[in-house]
């Protein structure tokens, strides 16, 4: 099962940051996207949680470094 794709995450980034042409890769971090501050980060994570029906623990929230980490975290949850 392929699970959540980077394109699906891109759509969320595009929605949260109101930028239709935004491009992301597994290496993308918050610093690479304009407007990705701590507040928008919360909004982004909440949108991810709601869209894919997953819930992150406090520890997971702290350990995520880039888009690739997030993708793996979502997929490890939605498979269980």
């Amino acid at each position: 099962m392929p699970g959540v794709t980077i394109e699906q995450l891109r759509e969320i980034v595009s929605d949260v940051f109101d930028d239709e042409d935004v491009e992301i890769s597994e290496e993308t971090t918050a610093h690479d996207v304009e407007g990705w501050d701590s507040l928008n980060h919360i909004r982004f994570m909440v949108t991810v949680e709601q869209r894919f029906n997953v819930r992150f623990t406090s520890r997971e929230v702290e350990s995520l470094q880039n888009v690739g980490d997030l993708l793996r975290a979502i997929n490890s949850k939605s498979q269980t």
Binding site: S38, I42, R43, V46, Q50, F56, T57, S58, V61, E62
Partner: peptide, 14 residues
């Protein structure tokens, strides 16, 4: 509690 601890959000974002 998760959001309070991680970002001091007084209410769940949802």
């Amino acid at each position: 509690a998760v959001h309070w601890h991680s970002a001091k959000l007084p209410i769940a974002p949802q």
